[in-house]
Amino acid sequence: MTLCLGIVTIVCAALLGAVNILTADAIAQAAVAKTEQAISAVVPAFDNRPASDRMTLSLEGESLAVYPAKQGDNPVGYAVEVSTSKGFGGTIKLMVGFDPDGNITGTSVISHSETPGLGSKMTEQKFYGQFVGKNPASFRLSVKKDGGDIDAITASTITSRAYADALSKAYRAFQNIKSNQNQSEK
C-alpha cells in the first residue's frame, strides 16, 4: 500500500525532474526576453545587446541593474531597472530610460501588484506618456498634490507617488553613472 504510493510519487518526481531540465533554458530565455523587451521600450534605437552589457550599481544600499544602449560605440541611452516598495499593493518594478543628457526617453512597468482598474492605470500611455522628453533636472518628480509636476492617476495617489519615487531613484542612479564616467574620462 505504502509501496504503491511511493512508486507513484517516485515516478511523478522523476518525470517532473526531466521536464524541469527541458524547460529550464526556455524559462531563463523568457526572463531575458522580458528584460530586453522592457529595455527597447524605453530607450532610443540601439544596435548592441544591452542585456549582456549589464552593469550593477549600488545606490543607497540597494543594487540596481543598468543597461547601456549604444549605436556603434556611441551611447544613446541608459535603461535603469528600479523597484519601489511604496506601491499600494506591494512592490512595483520599473524600467526607466534616459538619453545621455538625462532626459527621460520612456518608462515601462515590469511587474506590479496594484489594484486592477485603479493603480494598474500606470501601465496606460495616458499616464506614462507624460514623462517622455522631460528632464528631472527641471521636471519635479512628485505629484501635483505634493507640489511636483506629475499628473497623478485619478483615485490612485499612492501608486502615482510610488511611481515618482521609483523615477527619482532611477534618476539618481543615472546621475551616479554620469559622474563616474566623467571622472574616468578626466
Partner: peptide, 10 residues
C-alpha cells in the same frame, strides 16, 4: 514566495 512590505523595506 511573495515579498511583503511591512514597514519600510520589501
Amino acid at each position: 514566495t511573495k515579498e511583503f512590505t511591512f514597514g519600510s523595506e520589501a
